[in-house]
Amino acid sequence: MKEVSRLTDIKWLRIVEFFNAWENAETLSEKQKTLYIKEGRGAKVKLDPVKEILPGLIKENSRNLKVILSILSEKHQINVSKVTLQNFLKETNL
């Protein structure tokens, strides 16, 4: 497991979880579903309501995402991590 983890750059515990899910699946279609990335990963949907506001915030604070995070938290009650915001901006090409 450690060698596979090193080669694939995936944590060994995730590999163990994958093999356990694969072995516990009864049908071929269930086994194939273990290969899919689960929904809910990546930039969160809760940023969609402020999608129109973000370009202006980015233009004003292009070098400091912490300011954008604090504005989202204070004015819009949206708490996300810096990485989540970065992923959302990449996904939406903002």
Results as ranks from 00 to 15, higher is better:
30 E>C: 00
30 E>R: 05
31 K>F: 06
31 K>G: 06
31 K>E: 05
31 K>V: 02
32 Q>S: 12
32 Q>R: 15
32 Q>C: 08
32 Q>T: 08
32 Q>D: 08
33 K>I: 03
33 K>L: 11
33 K>R: 12
33 K>H: 08
34 T>L: 11
34 T>N: 09
35 L>W: 08
35 L>F: 15
35 L>C: 12
35 L>E: 06
35 L>S: 06
35 L>R: 10
36 Y>S: 13
36 Y>V: 12
36 Y>N: 05
38 K>P: 01
38 K>S: 12
39 E>V: 09
39 E>G: 07
39 E>S: 15
39 E>M: 05
40 G>K: 13
41 R>E: 05
41 R>K: 14
41 R>I: 02
41 R>D: 00
41 R>L: 00
42 G>L: 06
42 G>F: 05
43 A>F: 03
44 K>D: 08
44 K>G: 13
44 K>H: 04
44 K>Y: 05
44 K>C: 05
45 V>N: 12
45 V>I: 09
45 V>R: 15
45 V>H: 12
46 K>Y: 08
46 K>P: 00
46 K>L: 07
46 K>I: 12
46 K>T: 05
46 K>W: 05
47 L>I: 08
47 L>D: 01
47 L>Q: 00
47 L>C: 03
47 L>A: 02
47 L>M: 06
48 D>K: 14
48 D>V: 04
49 P>G: 06
49 P>L: 07
49 P>Y: 06
51 K>P: 01
51 K>Y: 06
51 K>V: 09
52 E>S: 12
52 E>I: 10
52 E>H: 15
52 E>Q: 13
52 E>P: 11
53 I>L: 14
53 I>K: 06
53 I>C: 02
53 I>D: 02
53 I>N: 02
53 I>W: 02
53 I>Y: 07
54 L>D: 01
54 L>E: 00
55 P>E: 09
55 P>M: 10
56 G>W: 07
56 G>N: 15
56 G>L: 15
57 L>V: 03
57 L>P: 00
57 L>D: 00
57 L>S: 03
57 L>K: 03
57 L>F: 09
57 L>H: 01
57 L>N: 02
57 L>Y: 04
58 I>R: 07
58 I>T: 03
58 I>E: 01
59 K>M: 14
59 K>S: 14
59 K>P: 00
59 K>T: 11
59 K>A: 15
60 E>F: 04
60 E>N: 14
60 E>K: 15
